[in-house]
Write a protein that binds this DNA or RNA. Structure first.
Lengths: 179, 179
DNA sequence: GAACACATGTAAGAAGTTACATGATTAT
DNA sequence: ATAATCATGTAACTTCTTACATGTGTTC
């Protein structure tokens, strides 16, 4: 899903400014799912507006640039529906942690316990950051579902590391002692 | 982790050609972790060789281009170690499926059951493709760990969809009937 | 008074993908 | 015969990020 479609989809959930879209992508349930920077969001919004898939109204502000509030049009909804008819691509996971584990075994096995520890920490704080979002009463049931899905995945990873991480460390100790 | 480092790491696991690296990234435990196309692998290998982090020996072949077998050097190992000293970045998940779910609620809620179904199918075949790899006796314990980690995540997702997917569909039926 | 939140936008550059170029061998 | 596998490489293109440009208001 490219940034254009992402912006279009977010605007289907409600009117927003570019700034707000960025915030949603960084903090909300959308953060689990996608990424986007200002440098890609603003041009995407301009393009969508030019094509009539969204509209823009300016709200004057003092001491800062006018707020540009974008709203999806019926043509935009239709375009989004067409995209959603396609089966979504498989999720892509890009895990530097797992890659580092694999490579560390070859060149720096002593680094592995630290990698496991760091990841457990990281997962813990991600979970802690996400969990309170569930308390928001305003969530739709699908938003709640997505959040819970994300939490489920993070917790599954943490549980795996708790249970199996020590076992891995043990195996490595044994095999390095055998040399 | 950029493609350069990825190639360097793979060569730390053993000598390989560009073609083989591509295969590992598509099929092995590495497929869970990273992606790379020929268009990025070949230039990366050429660059690494120029910098002395890997070496290249050519093996003549008939009827096809010479096989270029790359091997990591001690300088390469050292460079890789330096990279591994840095804490790895948090995993990035890019899930068009979850995004589609969120957006579908707004513009095409009738599409949600199909999305859930498709994802369950997709997870099933990913799991089925990965599971037999565990039988490979040649896996190092870390490679096995990574594979099992990946399987654990896929199964956690599938279990979540089995249990909670139906509940979501039910909730949506109720709320659409209420209109 | 330093840092962060608000607010938009552009331009240069990084990083990678896709498609092209070439062609034998092997399996279906 | 048609497609897939083996094998390398380049060039054009897409896509996105980072950094710059600008400035006020608010919080620590």
């Amino acid at each position: 899903m490219d940034i254009r479609t992402l912006c279009l989809g977010i605007l289907a959930l409600g009117d927003a400014t570019g700034y707000e879209i960025r915030k949603m992508v960084r903090e909300g349930s959308l953060a689990l799912v996608a990424e986007a920077s200002f440098g890609s969001i603003y041009p995407a919004l301009a393009q969508l507006a030019k094509e009539g898939l969204i509209t823009c109204r300016s709200e004057p502000q003092e001491g800062r640039p006018d707020k540009k509030i974008y709203a999806i049009t019926e043509a935009g909804r239709e375009a989004l529906r067409r995209v959603l008819q396609q089966p979504p691509e498989p999720d892509r996971v890009r895990s530097d942690f797992l890659a580092a584990l694999l490579f560390a075994e070859a060149v720096a096995p002593e680094r592995i316990p630290a990698l496991l520890f760091l990841r457990r920490e990281q997962l813990g704080s991600q979970i802690a950051a996400l969990e309170p979002l569930l308390d928001d009463e305003a969530l739709t049931c699908t938003q709640r579902f997505v959040l819970r899905y994300g939490l489920n995945q993070l917790k599954a990873a943490r549980a795996f590391l708790e249970e199996e991480g020590r076992r891995l460390e043990e195996e490595l100790r044994v095999s390095s002692a055998a040399e």
